Amino acid sequence: MPLDTPPSKGAVSVAAGVLRDRQGRVLVTRRADHRHQGGLWEFPGGKIEPGESVEAALARELAEELGIRVQASRPLIRVPYRYPDKQVCLEVHEVTQFEGEPQGLEGQPLRWLPTAALEAGLFPAANRPIITAVRLPGVYVISPDADDPQRWLAALEATLARGARLLQMRVRGAPGERRPLAEQALDRTRAAGAKLLINGDPPLAAALGADGVHLTARQLAECDSRPLPTPHLVAASCHDPAELARAARLGIDFAVLGPVAATASHPDADPLGWERFAAWTADAPLPVYALGGLSPADRDTARAQGAQGVAGIRAFWGPDTGDAHLPR
Rank of each mutant, 00 (worst) to 15 (best):
M1R: 14
P2G: 01
P2V: 03
T5C: 01
P6Q: 09
A11F: 09
S13I: 02
A15G: 06
V18T: 03
L19F: 13
L19T: 04
R22W: 06
V28M: 03
T29I: 04
R31C: 02
D33F: 07
R35T: 13
F43E: 13
P44V: 04
R60H: 10
R60C: 12
E61N: 14
A63Q: 15
L66R: 09
I68Y: 08
R69H: 11
Q71V: 12
R78L: 07
P84Q: 02
D85G: 02
K86V: 03
V88N: 06
C89H: 06
E94N: 03
Q97Y: 02
E99L: 14
G100L: 13
G100Q: 12
E101I: 07
P102Q: 06
P102H: 05
Q103G: 10
Q108C: 11
L110E: 11
L113T: 09
T115D: 14
A117G: 01
L118M: 08
E119H: 11
A120Q: 13
G121L: 03
G121K: 03
G121M: 04
G121N: 05
P124Y: 12
A125F: 04
I130E: 05
I131G: 05
I131H: 06
T132Y: 01
A133V: 01
V134Q: 11
V139N: 02
I142R: 06
D147C: 03
D148F: 00
Q150G: 01
Q150N: 13
L153N: 05
E157Y: 02
A158S: 15
R162S: 11
R165P: 09
R165I: 11
L166P: 10
G173D: 13
G173P: 15
A174S: 14
E177G: 04
L181P: 02
E183I: 10
Q184K: 15
A185M: 04
D187K: 14
T189C: 15
A191N: 07
A191H: 09
A192S: 14
L196F: 07
L196W: 04
L197F: 13
L197R: 05
I198E: 01
I198M: 02
G200D: 15
L208A: 10
L208H: 05
H214L: 04
T216M: 05
R218F: 02
R218A: 15
L220K: 04
L220G: 00
E222K: 10
D224F: 00
L228Q: 11
P231R: 06
P231K: 05
S237F: 00
C238I: 00
H239I: 01
H239C: 02
P241F: 08
P241Q: 01
A242K: 08
A242D: 15
E243S: 13
L244E: 06
A245F: 00
A247D: 07
L250T: 08
D253S: 03
F254V: 01
A255Q: 00
V256Y: 00
V256M: 13
G258R: 08
P259D: 06
A261F: 08
T263C: 08
A264F: 12
A264L: 14
S265L: 10
D268S: 15
D270I: 09
P271G: 08
L272T: 12
G273N: 11
R276E: 13
R276F: 01
A278C: 08
W280C: 04
W280Q: 15
D283V: 01
P285M: 03
Y289A: 10
G292S: 09
G293D: 12
P296A: 14
D298N: 14
A302F: 04
A307L: 06
P319M: 05
P319N: 07
P319T: 10
P319H: 05
